[in-house]
Amino acid sequence: MIRPLDPVTSRQRAAYGLAFFVLFVAVWAWATFGGYVSKTFLANPLTMLQEGWELLTTHGFLFDIGMTIWRVVGGFVLATIIAVPLGVLMGAYKPIEAFMEPFVSFARYLPASAFIPLLILWAGIGELQKLLVIFIGSVFQIILMVTVTVGNTRRDLVEAAYTLGAGDRGIINRVLLPSSAPEVAEILRLVLGWAWTYVIVAELIGSSSGIGHMITDSQALLNTGQIIFGIIVIGLIGLISDFLFKAFNAWLFPWKLA
């Protein structure tokens, strides 16, 4: 019997999670090996693996993966360095929030991918342009979410700190920051996931390296095996970075789990 909100053991959780992947590959294999889908449109799992192996061994795909990772991380770290302090200031000081929030909300809806042509014009097709796409796609989102998180700090904790003699600096450094930190870490994890979608888009246009570039190249050759391999690699890297982020957060904020 399954009952609402009943927990599962971590072993069961892993097994269930894996089962879906197995099911997914099985359906894919059935559709392709069974001949229900044309080879031109969708490669079968084995071809995909062969193509992937070839990509890695003869086409230097590892270098592309490395480039993509560096772009995501670079743009994301840049955005974080600027957005988190700004978000904290906006969350803590209402006049700053009133000043910045409407513009940031507006900027948040500008799609990062629409900036690509402009950015190419401004920054060329080099690394700076790729980083800027990630940066623009992430920075406004992080600012807004951090602002809300910091602004929602429990008032009773802030009041308790005041009665213990805390000043403005004490309130920010010793109440607002630590109480928001776990949620800010969660926000960063979420936005890092989005950053991955921006980087691929950036690499699809005017790029000579990266996973997105490989996918465009393969499309020209109608090599669906390579395209799918590229997509799966993106998914795997995302899964791994998400897992690492979660583990890191849990290690950083033990009081949250206790």
Partner: peptide, 20 residues
């Protein structure tokens, strides 16, 4: 005129800092 360390307060609700 404002809160200060000379007046200690224990609140009706639980207000320990959860991260400490």
């Amino acid at each position: 005129t404002g809160p200060g360390a000379d007046r200690g307060m224990v609140f009706q609700s639980y207000t320990l800092f959860p991260w400490l």
